[in-house]
Amino acid sequence: MAWKTLDDMDLAGKRVLTRVDINVPVDKGRVTDATRITRILPTVTDILDKGGTPILLAHFGRPKGKPDPEMSLKLVLPALQEALGRDVTFMERPSRDAIDALPTNAVVLVENTRFSPMEEANDPKMAQFLASLGDVYCNDAFSAAHRAHASTEGVAHLMPSCAGRSMEAELRALEKALGDPVRPVVAVVGGAKVSTKLDLLSNLVEKVDMLIIGGGMANTFLAAQGIDVGKSLCEHDLADTAREIADKAVATGCELLLPRDVVVAREFKEGAESETVKTEDCPADAMILDAGPDSVAHICQAFDRARTLIWNGPLGAFEIAPFDAATNAAAAYAAGLSSSGKLVSVAGGGDTVAALNKADASESFTYISTAGGAFLEWMEGKTLPGVAALG
């Protein structure tokens, strides 16, 4: 779809309403991880360089439509000023007059948009109020793009709108991965439950050439084939659904890869005694907690054949050794192919980022999305209101 970027906008002398994601972790009044703040710097700097005044709109926590001092963006202000290397004007009750009274090169941070119930209701009155504060709207918060809120969707229809640098990078990476990818495309989908990723699997079997299923999800697919998975995490009630997805894969020509061997243990704890067995030989009193080395070799062969990789979810219980081995090995292999330019690799989702960081593979992937829900909904083929509104 066509959406404008900051390059398409004349920002000289303009007030630029800029929706950002600075929903950062705070402990005892201090920001403990400023990654999300760092990600907005290119957009804020670009607006200032083009002669515009960035007016930052953001949510923080879940205040449920009421002011809550523990969720005030005042807590984020010091870390934001430090990252920008300049003062930022905080406005609890913004007005156009107050904004116009500031010098052109000022940066404004507006109080938590979710302090008003009108934000999540996407109330037209709030959208109109926000639009009155600026001349141009810039959305740089892909992570909130799956929400149709006043500050993410409503206001975009009321003024010239564009994507910020972080949003632009995310959309270009996603377009490369699923919109118009270089084929063959392989997807890794892992995690605990099939039930949380039904839409995702149904969409991917129509879009990708190879689909690797790992984690607890794989157990449900194995059980659906009549394989005894012992005491493993498994959604037996979704056996029919798993078979439908497998049948759809056959119909669309998507190769489905399930574990060939598995790592099993009688207890789930650090350093638990474990053994590797063929998938069909899982002992009745054991749990499948990771994919085995033969499965990893099979996965790496799929990566060798692919030109594009999309990754969401770990291949095993990666939080605890030795059940992180398959995720670590496959991630390291994908990272090597990405570094040498043989693979475009895009990954996202909370556990995925943590797993790839643990495997020291993140920096070599082509793009890592930290957007969580928005990344998943995009992978599911859903329209994201915050992106659609920029078109």
Rank of each mutant, 00 (worst) to 15 (best):
G214V: 10
S143I: 15
D7I: 06
F375C: 10
P63M: 10
V108N: 14
P283Y: 12
L102P: 02
Y137C: 08
K125E: 14
N203Q: 11
P293L: 12
V110R: 01
V205T: 15
K4R: 15
P184Y: 12
D46R: 15
P42S: 15
W311N: 00
R260G: 04
T327K: 05
G348T: 05
G214S: 05
N23Q: 08
L11M: 14
A388V: 07
K207Y: 04
G85H: 11
E92G: 15
T53W: 02
S295L: 09
R30L: 06
I55Q: 02
D247F: 03
L102I: 08
S364R: 13
L171T: 06
G372I: 00
E153S: 11
L204S: 06
V205N: 11
G253P: 11
P160M: 14
T220M: 14
D261H: 04
G191I: 09
P385D: 12
A388N: 06
R172L: 13
R86V: 13
I37Q: 00
I212H: 01
G190W: 09
D140E: 12
T279F: 10
I299A: 06
A251M: 09
E206F: 03
Q128P: 01
A334Q: 04
G230Y: 07
S369N: 09
P69Q: 13
A106R: 10
V296P: 04
T45W: 04
V182L: 15
S72A: 09
S338Y: 06
N203K: 12
K207P: 04
V110K: 00
L73M: 11
K50M: 08
S339R: 15
T113S: 12
G65W: 08
Y367P: 00
E119N: 08
G191N: 10
D285A: 09
E120I: 03
D180C: 02
E275V: 14
D324P: 05
A131N: 07
P94N: 09
E273M: 06
F90I: 12
R62K: 14
A249Q: 03
K278Q: 11
A251T: 11
S151E: 01
R183I: 07
D97K: 15
L77W: 11
G134I: 10
T32P: 00
K278N: 09
A291E: 01
D290G: 08
E380I: 14
F60R: 06
D123V: 13
G373R: 13
D33H: 07
T352F: 01
E255N: 14
T18W: 05
D237R: 11
P160I: 15
P78N: 14
A251G: 08
F115E: 02
E111W: 05
G29E: 04
G216Y: 03
L200V: 15
V107Y: 00
L17C: 02
R307N: 15
D228T: 12
K50Y: 02
K74T: 15
A163Q: 04
R39I: 00
D240W: 02
A326Y: 00
G61F: 07
K358T: 13
A331P: 01
Y333N: 01
T352G: 03
G214C: 06
G13W: 03
R86Y: 11
K231G: 04
R260W: 02
S143R: 13
G349I: 05
A332I: 09
T113E: 03
V344Y: 11
P69E: 12
P63A: 07
Y137D: 02
E119P: 06
H59T: 14
C234Y: 02
L57T: 09
R62S: 08
V208F: 06
G313Q: 03
H146F: 08
H149N: 04
K269P: 03
A249Y: 02
